[in-house]
Design a protein around this nucleic acid. Structure first.
Lengths: 269, 269
DNA sequence: AGGAGTTTATGGTATGACCAAACTTAGCCA
DNA sequence: TGGCTAAGTTTGGTCATACCATAAACTCCT
């Protein structure tokens, strides 16, 4: 039953004139380019165009992407290619595609970038010292953050910290609520530099580290201790004492680590 | 010329018993679980399995992935699904797939994570204040880095810094070489905390910011100024003077910014 | 108008074929 | 025998089609 009898017409005529890969040798060098992007794929052209349409707003943010079958017309490409493009854009965060629904355009922001690494980070956390490394980097960042706060916090920032601290205090008896206000307090710190990158990083830390934190034992006593730590940090910031703020922060996170450490591999140093 | 004459046997029998999606509503929440259970797409199952095979070492690092046609047998799935899985793993960084070559297994590391965000970052850099934000974050990090160095640099670290500085000096007349040694000098700073996350971040900064740096005018005079800045930083570190080191670093990067700023949107503050 | 039933649109998969470049292998020549 | 080239074989990239299941749209009846 050789079907190739009809080779020559049917699916044969493959040389249409739509999207075409360059097919030449890779000319582009890998300089500083985030994605090692393998050029040559036809999907890349589609990806590029869609990408552009998204950033330029031709495809509005939060709007559903045109149907695949429509896109294949628009780009003169097969569904295979279109789907591959969509999949890629999706994993890049420019598109959000739920199981059986129309993909939704998603203008990228810093948070998107962080979620993009989520997958890898999860693996890294599983490796020896992974959590420790991530946590250490957090301590490192926050140390700098509190110094920054002590040096340059504006009235408004201080007010926000005070509010967060108050909420913190109010939730001492409710460990779940406390956790939320705890995160919020640290979150304020990340917003002080007024650089959107930091809040995104904060989000990354909380989401990646959360699994471990959730397993940590919580209690009003612990909450109180943490509240006092926060207060010490804030006090130092108000006093514009960077060194004291940093020290308070380090003590705070150091102690927290001890409580989390035991929830997983005890060998993590 | 309707070829569908043979509809009924060929592509018909679609209900095989290989990888099957559950087809139910999404039950799984995104809880930091490496292998979330099948959530609708059949490819997810393949992805999960391959992912596991990679991390567990069944698929050795740097080894080529089995051929698609072989994988479809192994997983009892169509090539479509296999290819989608490969594409996803690829964009997640667990697999490196070049244009027309066999995909290569890539055990994830921190650098991989950073390259994964590369795509988004490029977009963000294009937006208003994007480069500035990224650069500011770099300054922020390095400020903390030099403080850290001043406080805790080991003999070996100091030695490395000195070597880097010497190389820096030796390359003053060759702007390209100088740029390389410049990057290297800062790189040492990122290695001092002995946390693999930082070198990865450094790589991110250099690659993402490089495009702008390359357009910056270079000259032996500028190089000399930069060399002196580096020396000032190192001196302060050797003196264990965190504040001085930080200040020197800030001055250094502040000045550098002025030279880069003009290479693009002059509105960036 | 509101809800039940039906149709259509659309995403997810499966097949099977073809092409071009990469990889093998066989063969040839010095 | 070592090495280079020309077939032959894989294998990734695409295309075209078909079928399923469900979401979304549309009818129609009460």
């Amino acid at each position: 039953m050789v079907l190739s009898q009809w080779a020559g017409f049917g699916p044969a005529l493959q040389q249409h004139e739509g999207i075409r890969r360059v097919s030449g040798m890779e000319t582009r060098q890998d300089v500083s380019d985030g994605t090692p992007h393998p050029s040559g794929r036809a999907a890349d052209a589609v990806i590029a165009k869609l990408e552009q349409q998204i950033v330029t707003g031709v495809l509005e943010n939060n709007a559903p992407l045109p149907a695949e079958r429509h896109l294949m017309e628009q780009f003169n490409a097969s569904r295979t290619v279109i789907r591959e493009a969509i999949a890629t854009l999706s994993s890049r965060g420019l598109i959000e595609s739920k199981p059986r629904f129309r993909p939704v355009v998603r203008k990228p922001d810093y948070a998107t970038a962080l979620t993009a690494v989520g997958g890898i980070v999860r693996h890294l956390l599983g490796e020896q010292g992974g959590v420790k490394n991530l946590y250490d980097s957090r301590v490192f960042i926050e140390r700098a953050l509190v110094r920054q706060a002590a040096q340059a916090a504006r009235k408004d920032d201080i007010a926000q910290l005070k509010d967060a601290l108050a909420a913190n205090y109010a939730a001492i008896d409710d460990s779940d609520a406390f956790y939320a206000t705890d995160v919020a307090f640290h979150g304020v710190l990340y917003r002080i530099p007024q650089n959107p990158i930091f809040p995104a990083i904060h989000q990354g830390y909380t989401s990646w580290l959360a699994p471990h934190w959730e397993k940590m034992l919580r209690s009003p006593e612990r909450n109180l201790v943490n509240y006092r730590s926060h207060k010490a940090i804030l006090d130092a910031i108000v006093e514009r004492d960077a060194d004291a703020a940093e020290e308070a922060l380090v003590n705070h996170l150091k102690a927290a680590w001890e409580y989390v450490r035991v929830t997983f591999d005890p060998d993590e140093r």
